[in-house]
Structure formats: structure tokens, C-alpha cells
């Protein structure tokens, strides 16, 4: 059983110095600059708590995005001390007292720490047609089509992606090639390829990702794998897709 209560403070509070990359593209006078705030740390404080505290008490114009604040919606991805991660589930006590926050690179900046991942993800989904393609008509009054339990689990394993954008922000390829679909896109394709309800062939998937903006653009730098907050098996899935797509290409 638990002997240490995580909700109890064990030490005198630290003073955090939080440096934030500020910029409001809506304001023509705004230039990107770092701004440093100081804040007293509280027990079990996350960056969600810290940033809201700053907005409410120090600078009401500070922009950032949180929705679920529980690590499941993917809204709050930002660059924390140089690495993309989910701010809501980053406990400040796991960081040094000097914290640097910046918006995710690659995505359109809305302001300060807020970026338009949603817009990019939607266009990725449209481009990769990330939905079940089936010509079967299903009678929903009748028993559903059966599926092996392990297969359902395997699909769910890939379905866990929350489209936070960390993988794209950590991707060296995406930094250089803005049309690259990123690990998030390829993982989506891998998910539908695995799903027997999706009747698309490998040739059809090749049409979606068989180029240098897709699977063949990936240089296997694995930033995606190493920052993914959901620990998705991105490396394996991209490798798997590459083998399948090359097979199509060589046939």
C-alpha cells in the first residue's frame, strides 16, 4: 500500500522561473520574444495548473490550449525544455526550476503556446482518407460481424493516437518538408490497414502514402517514437508499412 501520499508537500516550495516564447501573429506589432514569469510551486502542480495561475494572476493575455487536462485529448502539446510533450500531465516537480516553454514548431501559430494542430490533422485525415472504406451494407439490427479478440485489441493499440502533434514536432523530416504526413498519418494508415472492415488494398494505400511526402519520406530518425505521449509502436508500424508499400512498388 501507499506510504507516501502524493498530495502532501514534503519540502518547502520552490520558486519556478517559467520562460515562455510569446508571440501574437494577429497583432502586427507583436514580435516573438521570451518572457519569464516567476511562480511559487505547489504540491502536485502540473504545467496546466501553473499556466492557468500565470494567466489569472500575472498576464491575462497568455494564450495556451487545454481541454481534458488529463492527458487524453492531445490539446496541450508544447515544447517543454526543448522537447514536445503534453503540458497537462507534466508535473513541475519533475523539471528543474527553470522551465522553458515554446509552441510546437511546424504547426500554424495561433498565439503564444497555442498552435492550430486541429486544422493540420483535419487536412491530414482528408488527404489520407482515414475512415473505414467498405462497400458492405450493414444491418444494424442484426448481430455484428465477428472479430478475433486479439485483432480488436491490436487495432485499438494503434487507435490510441490522440493527434497531439508531438510526433510531427519531433520529426526531422517534417521540419524540412512541410507536406510530410508524419508518424501520426502513417499510424492512421497502419490502423486502417489492419482493420478487416476496411476493404482497401495495399495498392489503394500506396496511392495515399507511396511517395516522399509519405512513407518514403520518413528517414527513420524516430523522434516520433521517442516523444509519443501514448507510447504508440510508431517505429514498428512505419517499418511494417514501408515493407508493404515497397512490395507494391516493386511488383
Amino acid at each position: 500500500m501507499s506510504t507516501v501520499n502524493p498530495t502532501e508537500a514534503q519540502q518547502p516550495p520552490r520558486t519556478l522561473k517559467i520562460s515562455i516564447l510569446r508571440h501574437n501573429p494577429q497583432d502586427p506589432a507583436s514580435v516573438p520574444h521570451m518572457q519569464t514569469f516567476t511562480l511559487e510551486e505547489a504540491p502536485a502542480m502540473t504545467l496546466f495548473v501553473a499556466l492557468n495561475d500565470l494567466r489569472e494572476h500575472q498576464d491575462p493575455s497568455l494564450q495556451f490550449d487545454f481541454v481534458c487536462r488529463a492527458g487524453i485529448c492531445g490539446s496541450c502539446a508544447m515544447v517543454i525544455n526543448g522537447r514536445p510533450g503534453l503540458a497537462c500531465r507534466t508535473l513541475t516537480h519533475t523539471l528543474a526550476p527553470e522551465i522553458t516553454l515554446a509552441p510546437l514548431p511546424f504547426f500554424e501559430l495561433i498565439g503564444d503556446l497555442s498552435v492550430n494542430t486541429g486544422k493540420w490533422m483535419r487536412s491530414m485525415s482528408e488527404r489520407l482518407q482515414t475512415w473505414i472504406h467498405s462497400t458492405d451494407s450493414v444491418d444494424i439490427k442484426r448481430l455484428e460481424a465477428r472479430m478475433e479478440p486479439e485483432l480488436a485489441e491490436a487495432i485499438y493499440e494503434l487507435e490510441r493516437c490522440i493527434e497531439c502533434g508531438c510526433c510531427v514536432a519531433a520529426c526531422g523530416t517534417a521540419q524540412m518538408r512541410e507536406d510530410f504526413v508524419g508518424a501520426v498519418g502513417m499510424n492512421r494508415i497502419a490502423r486502417f490497414r489492419l482493420d478487416p472492415r476496411d476493404q482497401r488494398s495495399d495498392e489503394a494505400f500506396y496511392d495515399l502514402i507511396g511517395d516522399d511526402d509519405g512513407i518514403f519520406g520518413c528517414m527513420s530518425l524516430l523522434g516520433c517514437q521517442d516523444v509519443c505521449p501514448k507510447n504508440l509502436p510508431l517505429q514498428s508500424q512505419i517499418a511494417f508499412l514501408r515493407r508493404k508499400m515497397v512490395k507494391v512498388g516493386l511488383s
Partner: peptide, 24 residues
Amino acid sequence: MSKTTDLADASAKPTPLKSKLPAR
């Protein structure tokens, strides 16, 4: 009841429309 728009050719497609060069 499932979505069928634009899907008719999805399963039967014999070869991709896209160039095979990138794969090679």
C-alpha cells in the same frame, strides 16, 4: 448503413495510380 461514397473501387484496385518510382 456503412459509408460507401467513393469506395467502389477501393478494394478491387489492381495497381496504384501513383508512380512506383518513390518505392523503388
